[in-house]
């Protein structure tokens, strides 16, 4: 049941992006078998024996009254993190070989992250939509209505133009004032070195950078039964290709590209995850939560 609602194909039948995000997140949360340990309120963690020099305000006097021993009551730290999603809205994100385009998949993923952070964890979340320009910027905030603004921006983010990471990242650095999580959702059709070199400054500012590489199954393993003329969705370049090439050389090149991007990202301290649009969204959510848990 949970998987059915997390299936991207099923999600396309839900028109409201908020409902999509709610369905994904609540379905994902319900599917976890342990109590979530990522509350935002102050939570008791453990008792620690008092040692001189410790702050007396943290002594649990009730325990002292019962045991006449001084224990410090330790709480899990309350940390509000900041999530910024960089969404690639170039034309190549329109591609699909089945019901869900890469852009839709990216929207669902971003919306689910926003819902998870904004509603469940009360974190500040912001959005940057870019192609070769910075098209939309919503400052990370926890204000009332922030979630709706983010989802609205996602809904209005239609793919166009081509991808250029340099200019939006440059502007983005101007907006960064606080450390946080930077999630980049893109198909990363560029040279891995160029991508990582462009994104490295984000990491230098102390951000945790996560690359969600969204690809269609046909982009990884294209299947052509006859010689075909392909049109680049970003450059409009046409090219006649053969099934043999798509079956052999293309796949080798794509695999090398994916491997290089993963290696270069991890080398730069970034997390990289390949998201194929026919797979459920919970992988992305789990990855994000795992990282947040580990880094905080």
């Amino acid at each position: 049941m949970v998987q059915r609602f997390l299936d991207p194909t099923v999600l396309t039948s839900i028109s409201s992006l908020e409902l999509v995000a709610k369905t994904v997140v609540e379905g994902f949360v319900a599917g976890l078998h342990r109590s979530p340990n990522f509350g935002f309120s102050q939570e008791f963690a453990e008792y620690q024996a008092y040692s001189p020099g410790d702050d007396l305000r943290h002594i649990d006097w009730n325990v002292f009254a019962r045991t006449e021993r001084a224990y410090l009551k330790k709480y899990r730290g309350e940390t509000n993190t900041l999530l910024t999603v960089l969404l690639d809205a170039s034309n190549s994100m329109k591609y699909t070989s089945h019901a869900v385009t890469k852009m839709d998949y990216a929207r669902y993923m971003a919306a689910s992250l926003f819902y998870l952070t904004g509603v469940t964890q009360r974190d500040a979340a912001g959005l940057i939509v870019f192609d070769d320009e910075l098209r939309e910027y919503i400052r990370p905030s926890t204000r009332q209505g922030q979630l709706h603004r983010l989802l609205s921006a996602l809904e209005h983010a239609e793919p166009r133009a081509r991808t250029d990471y340099a200019k939006p990242i440059h502007h983005f650095q101007d907006f960064l004032r606080r450390r946080g999580f930077v999630v980049i959702i893109s198909d990363f059709y560029d040279q891995p070195d160029t991508i990582v070199r462009t994104l490295e400054p984000l990491r230098f500012h102390g951000n945790e950078v996560i690359l969600f590489h969204v690809l269609d199954p046909q982009e990884i393993q294209p299947k052509l039964n006859a010689p075909s003329t392909l049109v680049d969705m970003e450059t409009q370049e046409t090219m006649e290709v053969t099934p043999d090439y798509a079956r052999t050389e293309y796949r080798a090149k794509m695999d090398a590209h994916l491997q290089a991007l993963r290696d270069r990202a991890q080398g730069a301290g970034m997390d990289y995850y390949l998201m194929v649009t026919d797979r459920p969204l919970d992988d992305a959510l789990r990855e994000y939560l795992t990282m947040r848990q580990g880094r905080l």
Partner: peptide, 16 residues
């Protein structure tokens, strides 16, 4: 042939 849109021809080579 009917042209088919593809996200990127970055990894294709012309084999006309």
């Amino acid at each position: 042939t009917t042209p088919r849109s593809f996200s990127s021809l970055m990894f294709f080579e012309r084999r006309t």
